[in-house]
Design a protein around this nucleic acid. Structure first.
Lengths: 345, 345
DNA sequence: AACGAAAACGCAAACGATTGCATCAAAAGA
DNA sequence: TCTTTTGATGCAATCGTTTGCGTTTTCGTT
């Protein structure tokens, strides 16, 4: 008993019955005497019997495992999403196998391969920044594999997408800045191949237009990396230029916003008096820095949970993927802190 | 070909050979003609054959999957550890299945159960705060299951532990505060059942003693939750008390340290002029807040990577677990920022 | 022409569990 | 007493792959 788990065969041998009987006894099938059931269950408990999930998977061609592919675990937002995924999967009896792509396209593809080898029941995907074409996903969808995309979602047929309402979040943030009296608002944008970046840019533009401010394309600057260092440098550059100085920064993410704040401080500008700043994602540090950084909160946990629920429903045929034509959007919430509130007036 | 992957049998049937031949041809076994090998490989490529990892696992009683059990994914430190784990596992051809316990003992146990069912090759564990007894781990170790503990490690026989040098990190941090002239240093300690908390307390005490300062047990206050809110309240309480006021706070983690900073600010005390603060973990926000929070950096990625390497070496019999008697400690690094540097004086 | 050896391949069991169908006994009905 | 029904269990195939051993084919040698 030392090595190797007890199997149904072991129980069968010990009790002088067949494996079939043991299997059925354990699952309370009709047609097995109460006496036998009792003995089987007793011995099973005594031997600490645990069904071999691998054997089960092979038999049923189902692994009760879902594969999660994300760019990077260490991003706070993604870690909250994982938490949501894990929570739902666990409660419904599924395992989660995880790989991060580190934003590499090749790794995204090879991860899919190994997961397919492992007879994954379905995929949960947020694709990498490098990914520009989506054949590897389309093929899977065509073959009928369940996939739910979240946050970074592709624009391909049959894809089921769960995302936050980036447009609305961006629109709200920029409107808020305008109401606070800021007029020349720079948008530190994300990589333009990502839908989320595009949506946020769209929200930014519409907010300006709706408030009677003309969009100046020069004020939309791309920050591909999304780090504070990058945005700090870019912002410093902007502040140095002789053109009419901006008086607010709306970051595609919180790191970019923080970088802008630092650059402003470096340039001797005060936040929020001289310059307003709003970020996106509501990372933990937003409430800890001084001044507190206003930010658009994304419901990461809910997103992970929702995406997983949909995926499992599809896997378990409770839901027909054909019926979902619209992306599922989750509401954002603008959290207003000091960085964007003009106290003087 | 729509649904269901091509199997070895499919290839065999198509080519009028046996499965054995196909299997051997694919792996370049001797005793198969070059001609056959060519044909098999060609067809395999054409059918997009992918070996069924589940069947393989069943046959070899090996799953090439390791199970990771951690308290919470959303902790920055743990997410860096996961990243390290994932990196090494991926490069060595293993899958990672992940569960978080949410600090619950029951969930820890049930996670182990499901992982055992899934024929996990080994465990990587950081146990929950609720966990007080370790039979569920001891049993596994006795049965010969490979387990490597990290960060939160148990004091039980045969356990292989990977941890940061908490003692040294704590000692360095407190010594630094003393050298800056702070004298009454409060330690916002972690749960005392965790080895890491104990080690940090030990480092705190030794640093004081070595610098000729007597340890005052009243200055060691437990912050079981480790949140900023909790520590903010506790710190406020301490500052209100009539006793000789402390002039520095050393947090068991960064959140606790930030809480202390906020409480000081609330009380009208300036950091670092009046009060010095040092945290532990070096979360991302440390460099973003004002003043920057000095902190002891823990090499999370390296810890995950190291633990995984050891585990895989044990699994692959490259390493004999009996040979490891000492915990593996990774060096910490004290990052000094403004919060603990007295400029006046 | 005949024999032996090497080369190429197939058979079948095994991993652990499930399940349609057959089998056997005992109990019920005629 | 003999047939029919019901209840309890076993057989064997299956999922996809590997592998020890046996079988067949093809040569080369004498």
């Amino acid at each position: 008993m030392k090595i190797g788990q007890a199997t149904i065969k072991d129980i069968a041998r010990e009790l002088n019955v067949s494996s079939s009987t043991v299997s059925r006894a354990l699952k309370d099938y009709p047609g097995i005497s109460d006496e036998t059931k009792r003995k089987v269950k007793e011995l099973a408990a005594k031997l600490n019997y645990r069904p071999n999930a691998i054997a089960l998977s092979l038999r049923k061609s189902r692994s009760f495992t879902i594969g999660v592919i994300i760019p990077e675990v260490v991003h706070f937002f993604f870690s909250t999403v994982i938490s949501g995924i894990e929570e739902v999967a666990y409660s419904r009896g599924y395992n989660v196998i995880l790989t991060q792509t580190n934003e590499k396209f090749d790794r995204e593809r090879s991860s899919i391969e190994t997961m397919l080898s492992n007879q994954i029941d379905g995929f949960l995907v947020s694709y990498s920044k490098e990914t520009q074409e989506f054949d590897h996903f389309s093929n899977l969808l065509d073959q009928g594999y369940p996939i739910v995309f979240f946050d970074r979602v592709p624009d391909i047929p049959k894809a089921i997408n769960v995302m936050v309402d980036d447009y609305r979040g961006s629109y709200d943030a920029v409107s808020h800045l305008i109401r606070q009296g800021y007029k020349r608002i720079v948008h530190l944008a994300g990589p333009k191949n990502l839908t989320i970046s595009k949506e946020r840019i769209r929200g930014y533009k519409d907010a300006l237009t709706d408030h009677g401010i003309q969009v100046d394309e020069n004020l939309i600057v791309e920050c591909p990396l999304g780090t504070d260092d990058e945005s700090r440098k870019i912002t410093a550059e902007i502040l140095k230029s002789p053109a009419q100085k901006p008086d607010a920064f709306f970051g595609n993410n919180d790191m970019a916003a923080v970088g802008a704040m630092m650059a402003c401080r470096d340039a001797g500008l005060k936040v929020p008096e001289d310059v307003g700043v709003v970020g996106f994602s509501n990372w933990q540090f937003c409430s800890m820095i001084e001044p507190g950084l206003s930010s658009v909160a994304q419901p990461g946990f809910q997103m992970g949970a929702k995406a997983t629920e949909i995926l499992l429903d599809i896997i378990e045929k409770k839901l027909d993927p054909e019926q979902i034509n619209e992306p599922i959007t989750l509401p954002t919430e603008l959290l207003i802190r000091k960085s964007s509130v003009r106290t003087k007036n």
